[in-house]
Design a protein around this nucleic acid. Structure first.
Ligand SMILES: [Mn+2]
Ligand SMILES: [Mn+2]
Ligand SMILES: [Zn+2]
Ligand SMILES: [Zn+2]
Lengths: 148, 148
DNA sequence: ATTCTGTTGCAACTCTGTTGCAACAACCCG
DNA sequence: CGGGTTGTTGCAACAGAGTTGCAACAGAAT
């Protein structure tokens, strides 16, 4: 997310419409916040940003919409090692899964792509007989600047 | 954990003593619960079991002890896809990291070891310049019995 | 035994997320 | 375009997980 400006804005709306999901002003606001985010946001941050577009939006609507997007596989939910508090973070589900590394000292998050990760997912499906819906690899460590 | 009976009981106590950590009755009870657990436990379950050994233990002591063990790298914290509620789960940190697959329908958790996973961690350390302290790979999907 | 210091129980609290319900607004159909 | 159906919303109350300040307490070392 701190990357990928390759997203068509309104993508979520299209995908949800295709599946016959009713579109509302509140949902448009929330989708827009998530689609245009340049970093990982938690539910509280999404709420605050969405309220700038539609001041009446309630917390419960944000959670319900996040639930909807999760069920439809359009977003991923992350812990990011719960570096501050217990909130979960959200991001558009990328075409290709990526890994999150969090620095336990400075909090920097970096994202990482790897063919090895793709192979590993394939191996799990094959050897465990699971059909994978979501795979989260999150790493805590110390970035080059923070190593003691 | 649903496996690994290869642990020396009292291992945690030794490791903490070596690091000059004060040992108390409450801690002994909690460590004992975690060391002998045959499945992943959340803080509430750990509390209930620990109270059978020392009835006066408080919730906050469990959380403080879990924090201690996490800081010392003796346990891992897991989401297990938050299949029921928002609690986190705990297990002894194994010598070799393993992957958790959760079935989104029946809740079955399976654990999986892979050389690919070890290589991937090595690759991340090398390419990202992070020193990895903890790596969590958690997968949600559908087990062979639950596939539609 | 005494002292020092880290630990505990308690109670109150914060924060994240959920739910029942009545009012409301999309969307479909004619 | 209305008008009805049904999914969605705000609200307010709730539930659950985890945290904190503090006074009493208990390890460990002398
Ligand atoms: Mn979590
Ligand atoms: Mn495990
Ligand atoms: Zn750092
Ligand atoms: Zn299953």
């Amino acid at each position: 997310m701190p990357f990928a400006n390759t997203e068509i804005p309104g993508r979520f709306q299209t995908l949800l419409a295709e599946r016959g999901i009713r579109m509302t002003g509140q949902r448009r606001a929330i989708l827009n916040v998530i689609e245009t985010a340049k970093k990982h946001l938690d539910a509280g941050q999404i709420l605050r940003r969405a309220r700038k577009l539609d001041a009446s939006i309630d917390r419960s609507t944000v959670y319900r919409t996040l639930g909807l997007l999760k069920r439809h596989g359009l977003i991923d939910e992350l812990d990011l090692m719960h570096l501050e508090g217990e909130a979960h973070y959200y991001e558009r589900k990328p075409d290709r899964g990526h890994i999150h590394l969090a620095c336990l000292r400075c909090g920097k998050i970096i994202e990482f792509d790897s063919d090895l990760f793709e192979s590993l997912k394939a191996q799990m499906e094959k050897e465990c007989g699971y059909r994978i819906a979501v795979a989260r690899l999150e790493v805590g460590g110390y970035c080059s600047k923070c190593r003691t």
